[in-house]
């Protein structure tokens, strides 16, 4: 393995959550998103020798991901891009500015999820692991689709607050040690 590939692999590990989120904004079926992400990972490694190390890695990887999304949409005529090109560019720019700190914060998500009550965990299980939409979740749980949508929104907000609190607590601990 040459040194360029080694560097790019290391950077990819850090950039992957950001690139994955960017792809997920436009390829919303999770398994399709995973396919596009894998193809992006391969394209990133294959292009390792063309990466200019003076440029931010995430911005470069997002550009490759955008090409892969285009190819995916071209391959699968059933899918179409829900945003226009200008909006996609804005979104790409926004993801390019995501900091390591923001990505790092998400490590608290697991703890926050574990603190939810079992019913709420089940909702996330059905939505994210089973990739069910609110209407299908509602059918399984005997709830209205709208109620499921609102519950998911409420829970995501709750998790965001939990992550922010955990981050603040961790920073306070680190500050105390220093």
């Amino acid at each position: 393995m040459n040194e360029n590939v080694r560097i790019v692999m290391r950077q990819w590990t850090l950039a992957q959550p950001v690139v994955s989120s960017f792809i997920g904004a436009m390829v919303r079926d999770f398994s399709d998103r995973d396919d596009v992400l894998q193809e992006t990972a391969v394209a990133v490694l294959e292009s390792a020798d063309r990466y200019d190390h003076s440029r931010p890695f995430i911005a470069w990887a997002l550009g490759i991901a955008r090409n892969q999304i285009r190819m995916y949409l071209r391959r699968d005529s059933q899918q179409r891009l829900l945003f226009d090109e200008s909006l996609v560019s804005q979104l790409q720019d926004s993801f390019a500015t995501v900091s390591d700190h923001e990505v790092h914060q998400l490590r608290f998500l697991r703890d926050c999820l574990q603190r939810l009550d079992p019913g709420d965990q089940l909702l996330f299980q059905l939505r994210y692991a089973e990739d069910l939409k609110p209407a299908a979740i509602g059918e399984q749980l005997g709830m209205a689709a709208n109620t499921v949508s609102k519950a998911l929104q409420r829970l995501r907000d709750q998790l965001r607050v939990c992550i922010d609190r955990a981050t603040a607590a961790a920073q306070a601990t680190e500050g105390g040690r220093a």
Binding site: S20, S21, G24, L91, E102, Y128
Partner: peptide
């Protein structure tokens, strides 16, 4: 963007 990052991580964790 922030919400998409959370959404993505929820998928991974789940």
């Amino acid at each position: 963007t922030e919400l998409l990052l959370l959404h993505n991580q929820l998928r991974s964790e789940s």
